[in-house]
């Protein structure tokens, strides 16, 4: 979760799924962004057609067997917006959020996930989405928070962390800094993408939550993820691959401590 849009939640979710799978953790991915679903594409299972078996919907599985469920799979075309059937769309604001929560509950509970150690849930922007999810899943293990070092993003993310800790009362696994630096492809010069008065690491410290690491900006990362292959495996030498694996290792370590 983040609370802010455009910080790379979905990219980090896909990367984390990749990293945890590399570490031998059986991981699934649920796309909780019903109106802007992209996890099916980012996990390389965009063309999966939904079907059911034994009373459950079959999750799509990427090349590494990671099960994925997304609203994307139920919408016929890329241009199809999410519109709920009703005698009239007039006054839809009164019931739309209810049907979306019902849909999210079904995506979660009516999917045959197989045996999982971890289910990553990619949330849409908006701090209240996390609270809704926490209401739906009272046993939610923890929240991985994603931010860039943009001061605007960090202000929103700071509120989201407060919401998770104090209102939803869910543990925060840690804060991931995305798009932290940019490396010149010619000379290797590395520079920060955002510069502000507070760093993401300082933000994590201020809230007393772990700083899970910084993933550098990588032009080809999102496009590569759509192939459904492991970035960590295929680009093992790239700094982004190291960073993703480090973040995954810290999340894995946190989870292992939780289960003790």
């Amino acid at each position: 979760m983040s609370g802010k849009g455009g910080v790379g939640k979905s990219t980090v979710t896909a990367c984390l799924a990749d990293g945890l799978t590399r570490l031998g953790v059986s991981t699934g991915v649920l796309d909780a962004d019903l109106n802007g679903p992209c996890m099916a594409r980012m996990m390389g299972v965009k063309d999966h057609k939904p079907s059911s078996q034994n009373g459950a919907m079959i999750a799509a599985r990427n090349a590494y067997g990671v099960p994925v469920m997304s609203m994307d799979m139920f919408l016929p075309e890329d241009e199809t917006p999410l519109v709920w059937e009703a005698p009239s769309q007039q006054g839809a604001y009164t019931w739309r959020s209810m049907v979306e929560m019902s849909a999210l509950r079904e995506l979660l509970s009516d999917t045959d996930w197989g045996d999982l150690d971890v289910l990553l849930i990619d949330l849409p922007p908006g701090a209240e989405r996390f609270q809704n999810l926490a209401d739906l899943l009272p046993d939610l293990t923890g929240a991985v928070v994603v931010s860039t070092a943009s001061q605007t993003a960090m202000t929103v993310v700071s509120r989201s962390i407060s919401m998770a800790l104090n209102i939803a009362e869910v543990e925060v696994v840690g804060l991931v800094e995305n798009m932290s630096t940019m490396v010149c492809p010619e000379c290797g010069y590395k520079d920060r993408v955002f510069i502000g008065v507070e760093t993401v690491e300082e933000l994590a410290r201020r809230h007393g939550v772990p700083y899970l690491g910084a993933i550098p900006f990588n032009v080809g990362l999102a496009d590569f993820l759509e192939t459904g292959r492991s970035y960590i495996e295929m680009h093992a030498e790239h700094p982004a691959a190291h960073a993703i694996l480090e973040v995954a290792q810290r999340v894995h370590f946190w989870l292992k401590n939780q289960s003790k």
């Binding site: 057609k49 059911s52 016929p76 519109v83 019902s102 079904e106």
Partner: peptide, 29 residues
């Protein structure tokens, strides 16, 4: 109805993702 409630009760067994699929205006199914 958005909550998946069948007004008047149900006689048929529930299908997976029934509320989602039956409420989509333009669905894959």
């Amino acid at each position: 109805r958005s909550l998946g409630v069948k007004i008047g009760g149900r006689t048929a067994p529930e299908e997976p993702m029934e509320t989602l699929r039956s409420n989509l205006a333009s669905g894959q199914e």
